[in-house]
């Protein structure tokens, strides 16, 4: 087995309903190498969160999931609830967008973290309590003993997110899925949390799938980036390469929308049009309707995957570079 903690291949997720089937994820393929932080970016509705939920097998019985998802070598799709509970917490942990709602308001935060630990690891309560204190120290919560007995309403957003990170760490997972963990926080707190995550990756041999719509955060934190549009990854590669030489028009468009200091209101850029209706089949390139470089072929034929640089891939007809072969896929390039 290669050293990938998360490997998603040809993932398709459909939410069937009476009137229409929403095809939320279309042939999504991505992976996270051990010890790296992969940033998964895209605008709202592009399928980032659905992908992360699928990775934990949390989509619920109404979703139809096809493809392969491997977490630390273990297949997730079509596993029983009992098998999934083995993997959750122990192999992969998750932190969420809104720390204010992610913790139960009726229980002390320390108790909740301890319960998550006791659920995934066999140990005495005393030992568990010690480890929770240590984890609180690791995430720089002041006064771990006091924090342990606090209720969520007595803490700030930044503190709560630290508690969530502590909950993830204490279970010693190999993969951490962070679903927009800084979106609900102040910018200064956001910077602290990002620094903390960076440090923890280095110290704990952790790998992170970091979901965000903020390219600035990606630049500051991630090693590689995967750009998602309409349920599929349209471009991926090392952050330096992708941000310096984006090969997909959607990536370029996203980068233009990042506001810079000193910009006036009139300079604010956005991508015209909207994400395609996911309940109808898409012919050709999903981004064609909004693309500035669109040509005739874009409406007719789905673009192949091209290797624009050694480790940078793009699904665009205009991208230069050889079409990536399936053998390469099997060899573990993307």
């Amino acid at each position: 087995m290669s050293d990938k903690v998360l490997e998603i291949r040809n993932l398709n997720v459909t939410f069937p309903s009476l009137e229409r089937n929403v095809h939320a994820i279309r042939n999504c393929t991505l992976h996270v190498n051990r010890g790296e932080i992969l940033g998964l970016v895209g605008e709202s509705g592009s399928g980032k969160s659905v992908t992360s939920m699928a990775a934990l097998g949390l989509l619920g019985s109404s979703a139809r999931v096809k493809g392969n998802i491997r977490v630390v070598g273990r297949e997730i799709i079509d596993r029983s609830e009992a098998e999934l509970q083995e993997i959750r917490g122990r192999k992969v942990a998750m932190i969420f967008q809104n720390p204010f709602t992610a913790l139960n308001p009726f229980f002390q935060v320390g108790r909740q973290v301890m319960d998550a630990l006791l659920n995934s690891h066999f140990m005495s309560k005393e030992e568990a309590r010690k480890r929770v204190f240590q984890a609180f120290k690791d995430v720089r919560l002041p006064d771990p003993e006091i924090a342990f007995n606090r209720y969520p309403h007595q803490m700030s957003g930044g503190q709560l997110q630290r508690v969530m990170i502590a909950m993830a760490l204490v279970c010693e997972p190999e993969l951490l899925i962070a679903d927009e963990p800084t979106t609900a926080l102040d910018v200064t707190v956001q910077a602290q949390i990002i620094l903390l995550l960076r440090e923890l990756v280095a110290k704990k041999n952790l790998s992170i799938l970091f979901i965000t719509h903020d390219l600035g955060v990606v630049a500051a934190l991630c090693d590689r980036v995967a750009v998602m549009y309409a349920g599929m990854v349209v471009e991926s590669g090392p952050v330096v390469d992708v941000l310096a030489t984006p090969s997909h028009p959607y990536t370029s468009a996203l980068m233009k929308t990042v506001p810079a200091l000193g910009q006036t209101k009139d300079d604010l850029s956005y991508i015209p049009g909207q994400v395609p209706d996911m309940s109808v089949p898409i012919i050709g390139c999903a981004f064609a309707e909004r693309c500035t470089k669109v040509s005739e072929v874009c409406h007719k034929q789905a673009p192949p995957r091209r290797a624009v640089l050694t480790d940078q891939f793009s699904f665009c007809h205009n991208a230069s570079g050889p079409v990536a072969l399936d053998e390469i896929v099997a060899g573990g390039r993307l």
Partner: peptide, 26 residues
């Protein structure tokens, strides 16, 4: 449907414990 129930599921908590302890108290 609350987020904190999702948190428990994401950490592999058994259903019965989720329903009769964490959810019931709420």
């Amino acid at each position: 449907a609350q987020d904190y129930i999702l948190t428990l599921k994401a950490y592999g908590m058994r259903k019965r414990r989720i329903y009769f302890l964490y959810a019931l108290k709420a």
